[in-house]
Design a protein around this nucleic acid. Structure first.
Lengths: 216, 216
DNA sequence: TGAAAAGTTGACTAAATGGACAGGTATTGA
DNA sequence: TCAATACCTGTCCATTTAGTCAACTTTTCA
């Protein structure tokens, strides 16, 4: 008893909701991995519980139901996603802007592969749970960035390529290293993707995109 | 009775296995869509049956079990995939080779979006059912193409970019238009991807890849 | 310290799922 | 026309699934 109290003091005074935060986080992480691997329908509460090492009923104490849990996982993921979106800032030079953005996106693939996979699975399934998100800031963001690209084209700072396709190429190429990792590993006969792998890939992508768009 | 025989004659003489082929094909198509949308675990035999408009037991008459059905669907898909692989032939000029390949890949995304999505889902899940396929001809194919690229670099026909990353960029960018269709539609505010959409995308990708690799 | 609140979980349920199978019908070639 | 074969499917079953609940323990704060 005394021993337990000592531990408690070491951990700081108990506050309501502290346990809540920890337990939720534990479950959310396990759920993210499970949903990313098997999709919404394919994931099971039982496996998530085992992975998080909590009884299944404990998940239902913190989350209303499977859809609620999935929603919470997706919200976490989309917050991360949003942060990267805004990395595509409006510096003066196109070269800087695109270089930074490609690096940021590639870094995201390296550090948050499961988030990337979860998003990809959801998209491939027709984005049934993303409509609200995609309608929201997303369109505005895209429009704004497109107009920046168009002004660059008008100023002769880059070739006359459709901006949307450039963005899609960047998204596709960078996310590929998270989503299609098994294919990359086997093709390149590498046991795992190292930090160097990502740096090298980012360099190639930057070279091709910048030069390909006539940005120098 | 006579009427039925007439119909039979009109359809051509009955051969053993004719019905088999038709029924299998019907089920396989429904299964492809279901697996592509929900993954292996998330797909259900019941929904596949409803989609194909046959009783569930009929599926089990033609396919041993769920895994067997999935294997058959995957085999179909991989055959299509292989055909596109070999489109990356070894003409003389890099520009021709890459242009043709990008067009072929983009055409595949347009005409076989579900096959593309099925493959993507399987990859994102860690390719648990693809190990045999990926180990096989795949590595050899990749190695051979890489060496062609390297010879181009040696001959000064293209920039010194890692060939693997070029291939990955092409794969990623072209497959994106099949796999991430919802995102593209919402970003570009288009109701659906037309043939022009794909042509325009292919043109942009060709421009960026070729110029980006220093191929002219 | 003690009562209220928060957290925990084993046992349960109803529905969905993959699959088996027997008894049927349609198709075939002789 | 007639077996033999291929094809079809309603009905059943064992298992898995999401979700409930009541009894329980731990934590909190006055």
């Amino acid at each position: 008893m005394a021993h337990l109290m000592t531990e408690s003091i070491l951990r700081g005074p108990y506050k309501p909701g502290r346990i809540r935060e920890q337990s939720r986080e534990l479950i959310l992480q396990a759920a993210e991995a499970e949903f990313a691997c098997h999709g919404f329908r394919g994931a099971t509460m039982q496996r998530i519980a085992e992975s998080a090492q909590v009884p299944k009923a404990n998940i239902h104490y913190y989350f209303s139901n499977k859809l609620g849990l999935y929603g919470a996982v997706l919200e976490n993921t989309l917050n991360l996603w949003d942060a990267i979106f805004n990395e595509l800032a409006s510096h003066d030079e196109p070269a800087d802007v695109l270089s930074c953005y490609i690096d940021a996106k590639m870094d995201f693939s390296r550090t948050h592969p499961t988030a990337s996979r979860l998003f990809a699975k959801e998209m491939i399934s027709g984005a049934p749970h993303l409509s609200a998100y995609l309608q929201q800031d997303y369109r505005l963001w895209f429009k704004q960035r497109m107009s920046i690209f168009e002004s660059w084209v008008a100023q002769g700072k880059m070739d006359d390529v459709e901006p949307a396709h450039v963005i899609f190429m960047i998204w596709a190429s960078t996310q590929y290293y998270a989503d299609f990792e098994p294919q990359i590993l086997i093709a390149t006969q590498t046991p795992r993707l190292t930090e160097q792998s990502f740096t090298s890939a980012a360099d190639s992508i930057k070279h091709i995109i910048l030069k390909g768009c006539g940005i120098c």
